[in-house]
Amino acid sequence: MPPHRRPVTEPRWMRVTLCLLALGFLTLFLALPLAAVLGQALARGVEPFAAALVTPDTMAAIRLTLLTAAIAVPLNLVFGLAAAWAIAKFRFPLRGLLVTLIDLPFSVSPVVSGLIYVLMFGLQGWLGPTLAAHGIKIIFAVPGIVLATIFVTLPFVARELIPLMEAQGREEEEAAIVLGAGGWRTFLLVTLPNIKWGLLYGVLLCNARAMGEFGAVSVVSGHIRGMTTTIPLHVEILYNEYDFVGAFAVASLLALLALVTLAAKTFLEWVHRDELAAHTR
C-alpha cells in the first residue's frame, strides 16, 4: 500500500535517520545474504545457472512444491479466517490458551515437526502398520509432505489477522447485523474489506514459507529424486553432491518468490486504487 500523505509527520532529520537505520539493518540482514546466494549461483556464469534450472529433477521439484503450496495455503486461509473470527470477535474462557496453541507450530523445531508425523504414520509408529497393511502411503510420499507443510504454516494467516481484527473491534459488524445483513454478507462486505491487507500479508507469508520449508519436509520426504523432493530439498541434495552452482541457482529461484509477492501486492493496489484514494481523501 503506497504511503499516503500524512497530515502529521516527524521532522525531516528524524525521517532521514529512521530510513537510514532501517536500510542499514536490511542491508546487513537481507540484501547481503541475497547477494551472496546470487553470487554463488552465478559464480560460473549464466549458462550453468540456466542449465541447473531446467533439469528434469528441478522441474519435478518445482511441480511438487507448487502442488504442496496449492493445497496448504487455501487450507490455512480457511483455518486462519475461522480462528481469527472466533478469537478476535468473541470473548470466551481460555482464549489466551487457544491463541498459544495456534502459535505452537512456530515454536516446534522443524526437526520435531517432521518427527511427529513419523511417530504417527511411520512403520514403527501408531498408525503405520495399519496403513501399510492397506497399502496407504502417507509419509515418504506426497501426503506427508503436504501435512508437514500445513503444520509449519498453520499459524500464519490466523496470527496476521487476530491483532488486526481485535484492533478493529466489532462495532461495524454489529451495525451491519442490526441493519439486517446476514452473517456471510456481513463478513464479505464489512469484515473482509477491512482486513484485506492483513489477509494478503498472511497468505503471502504462508505461501513463501510453504514453498521454502525445509526441515520438517526433509524428515517426511524420503528424498526420492524427481518424486518426493521439493525445491528446498533439491537444493540440499545438489549442495551435498558438490553441485554448488546448481544448488544456489535453484535456491535463487525461491528468492525470486519475493518478486511474486511484489507483483501480487502491486496488482491488488491497482485493483483497489479508487478505494485507496477515497481512504486517503
Binding site: 503506497p2 537481507l30 520449508e213 528446498p232 519475493a258 518478486l259
Partner: peptide, 24 residues
C-alpha cells in the same frame, strides 16, 4: 510511512527469510 526510491522492492524483500530454505 515514508516514501523513498526502491521502497517497494525493499518491502517485497522482507519475506526473503521465509522463502529461502533455511540451509541456504
Amino acid at each position: 510511512r515514508y516514501d523513498f526510491p526502491g521502497r517497494r522492492m525493499i518491502d517485497a524483500m522482507v519475506d526473503l527469510p521465509f522463502a529461502l530454505p533455511t540451509a541456504v
